[in-house]
Design a protein around this nucleic acid. Structure first.
Lengths: 155, 155
DNA sequence: CGAATATAATTGTTGTAACAACTAATTATT
DNA sequence: AATAATTAGTTGTTACAACAATTATATTCG
């Protein structure tokens, strides 16, 4: 009745588990390489979104960055404290804030974009170009499917 | 001089970023499905490791579960509090603890292993069998490469 | 043997994430 | 226009994870 359970094999075949392991390692690698700059990988990705859509409101930033609203609020707090972004009340909606990147934020992005690319390059270096394309395609597909499942009524 | 930066495209092509997005969604899905049981996905994976290698010390659990030692200590604290594991001093090394899963822990695993499988199945359902194999293979390769990079002297 | 070193585990601190509850402002309804 | 419903953002709480520092015990070596 009771099946023997071998976790090593079980979990190494679990995409969720492997995704977590791998994500943490890549994130940690990026963090190492960003050490000279006063910014974390998650802050960096939010700053990049802000820099592009200068003047976005937090709701849109959260959505684009794939984070929930409380997390976004707190990351923005960090970026504000570091002087990489500014906020101002939306003149058309006093509940909302428009968020802009500062010159310091811009400059940091320009100096560090190559670092983010270097991590992507490490990934590309350990597989063929075709495999990389396939890998990214599958990630996007999986992402969409998981998003659907999370919000669907039940299983 | 200043290159225009389009974060949407930049980041959607970044494997680190996409890995993070996808990991969080799968983890969140597993959490939803485990809601009836008093355990989180990370605790669950640690418990599975413990159950298999009954009597391991924390150091080995940390290594196998891919977590650092402080995180492992704290997850074990949770599992202890919930009665899913027990610890006893290693008779051969009084610094160390041997960790065992309790009958409650065992039973929980037996009841929930199908839930973990259901999440894996969702992943398999959105790609071909071949693609799934390739995907897992690439994750393992990437994992090994990233582990190497993190510990290597520098870039 | 005894000092230096290494190891197992813990604690402290910071950052990210999910969830729930809340405030304040806006929009919709009647 | 007054009330109800919605929306933007914040705050509180719990849980992981990385890193650094600490404690206690083991091991190694001069």
């Amino acid at each position: 009745m009771t099946m023997p359970i071998n976790p090593k094999i079980e979990l190494e075949r679990s995409p969720g588990y492997m995704l977590g392991l791998t994500y943490r390692k890549l994130s940690s690698l990026l963090q190492q390489r960003l050490k000279a700059y006063d910014i974390t990988p998650e802050q960096w990705s939010v700053l990049l979104h802000i820099s592009r859509g200068n003047g976005m409101i937090q709701k849109d930033i959260a959505e684009q960055a794939g984070k929930d609203h409380p997390t976004t609020t707190r990351i923005l707090d960090q970026l504000l404290k570091k002087g990489f972004v500014t906020k101002q009340t939306d003149p058309n909606d006093r509940r909302a804030f428009l968020v802009f990147s500062t010159p310091e934020g811009q400059q940091l992005l320009e100096e560090t974009i190559a670092i983010e690319h270097s991590v992507t390059k490490e990934v590309q270096d350990c597989m063929t170009e075709q495999d990389f394309s396939k890998f990214m395609e599958l990630l996007h597909r999986l992402n969409a499917h998981a998003a659907y499942l999370i919000n669907s009524p039940t299983k």
